[in-house]
Design a protein around this nucleic acid. Structure first.
Length: 309
DNA sequence: CGGAGTAAAAGGCACTT
DNA sequence: AAGTGACTTTTACTCCG
C-alpha cells in the first residue's frame, strides 16, 4: 500500500480530525494508523502495512526506502525537534556580537520554555522514566516503542488527567512486556521505577481495562532460567524443570496461578531429583514467593504429574 | 533446621445492589 | 460505592524427624 493510498483513506475516514495532520505513523503489528501530530488513531485495522517492495539486502532496502530516519514514539516530539545551538556562532562559524547575541539568548530561552513548560512536559518525564527502566531491566527498543505507544494511547484517552504519570508509563511498559512475552514481573518494573507493587498493579489494571488490553499472562517457563541462576541451580536442573512445566501445561493446571510460583516449584522438584537440593525457604527468598506457596504448588505438581521426589 | 500441614487474614476479581 | 463469594497467596503457627 502506498503513502498516497493511505492519505486517501485518511482523508476519507478522519472525520472530526484536523485536515492538516502531521506525519502519519503506522503501527504494523496492530494495523493502526496514527496522526503524527496529535496521535489520533485514524484507522484501526489495515492489512499489509509492510514495505511495498521485497527486501533482499540492507543496501537494497536503504536505496528503496522513501523516508528519512524512523520517526520514533519514544522521543517526546518523535525526534523531530530542533535545538538552537548554545554556542554564539552564526551558520558559518563566526561569533555573534551585540544585539544579535541578546536576541539569540532570548530565542534559546523561549525554545527551552516551549519544551519544558508546554503540554508535553509530562510526556518528556514519562519517556525519561521509560528510558531509565528500560535500561535497568534490559528491555529491547521494540518493546519500549510499544510501551510508548500504549502510553500515547492512554494520553489520548485522557487517562493521565489527575493521575500519576509514572504509574501509567510503567504500566504501559509492563503491558508491552506482557504482549511481547518479555518476562518482567510487575515487581521488577515497580522496583526499577521506584514505585510500590500495589500502586503499579492498580495502574496496570486501569490501563488494561481502558485500552481493552487482553494480554495473556506469562508462561512459567519464562522464569525458569532466571530463577535458576539466582538460586545457583544447574543447567540440567532447569532443563528438567522446563520438562515438568511442559507436562503441567498439558494437564492445564497452571491457569489462574502465579507463573513465577510454578517456575519456582518446578525448580524445587527438579533440584530434588538431581540431588542438588535447595530448601523451599532458600528458593522462596530468592524468587519472592512464599515457601508455603512453593510447598503447595510442588505438592500439586507431585500429585497431578506423579512425581516422586 | 527442613519440611508438611493448617487456620486465619489479606488481596484481587467478577458480579450484584 | 459498597457488598458478596470464590479463589489465591501470605502470615504465623504447630508438629515431626
Amino acid at each position: 500500500m502506498s503513502i498516497v493510498t493511505i492519505q486517501m483513506i485518511v482523508s476519507n475516514t478522519s472525520k472530526g480530525h484536523e485536515s492538516n495532520h502531521g506525519p502519519i505513523i503506522t503501527d504494523n503489528s496492530s494495523g493502526e494508523i496514527l496522526c503524527g501530530s496529535c496521535g489520533l488513531v485514524l484507522i484501526e485495522k489495515v492489512e499489509d502495512m509492510g514495505n511495498e517492495q521485497r527486501i533482499y539486502d540492507p543496501e537494497h532496502y536503504m536505496s528503496n526506502s522513501r523516508t528519512g530516519a524512523w520517526s520514533t514514539l519514544t522521543i517526546h516530539d518523535r525526534g523531530l525537534s530542533t535545538v538552537i545551538d548554545p554556542k554564539n556562532k552564526d551558520a558559518s562559524g563566526n561569533p555573534i556580537f551585540g544585539p544579535m547575541k541578546n536576541t539569540m539568548g532570548r530565542l534559546r530561552l523561549w525554545d527551552s520554555h516551549s519544551k519544558s513548560r508546554s503540554a508535553d512536559r509530562s510526556m518528556r518525564s514519562a519517556l525519561q522514566m521509560l528510558d531509565t527502566v528500560k535500561t535497568k531491566l534490559d528491555i529491547s527498543d521494540a518493546v519500549t516503542e510499544r510501551a510508548a505507544y500504549f502510553y500515547r494511547k492512554a494520553v489520548l484517552r485522557k487517562l493521565t488527567r489527575g493521575r500519576n504519570i509514572n504509574g501509567l508509563i510503567l504500566s504501559a511498559l509492563y503491558a508491552a512486556c506482557r504482549e511481547s512475552n518479555v518476562p518482567r514481573t510487575i515487581q521488577d518494573i515497580a522496583n526499577s521505577g521506584n514505585v510500590n507493587t500495589k500502586f503499579l498493579s492498580r495502574h496496570y489494571r486501569l490501563l488494561a481495562r481502558e485500552l481493552d488490553l487482553n494480554l495473556e499472562s506469562f508462561a512459567p517457563s519464562n522464569f525458569v532460567s532466571r530463577l535458576a541462576s539466582i538460586s545457583g541451580l544447574s543447567e540440567k536442573t532447569s532443563r528438567d524443570a522446563l520438562y515438568i512445566l511442559r507436562q503441567a501445561k498439558e494437564k492445564r493446571i497452571t491457569a489462574g496461578k502465579n507463573p513465577v510460583a510454578f517456575a519456582a516449584a518446578a525448580l524445587y522438584l527438579s533440584a530434588l531429583m538431581n540431588v542438588e537440593q535447595k530448601s523451599q525457604k532458600k528458593i522462596s527468598d530468592s524468587c519472592g514467593i512464599s515457601s508455603v506457596t512453593i510447598r503447595n504448588i510442588s505438592m500439586l505438581l507431585r500429585k497431578k504429574l506423579g512425581i516422586n521426589a
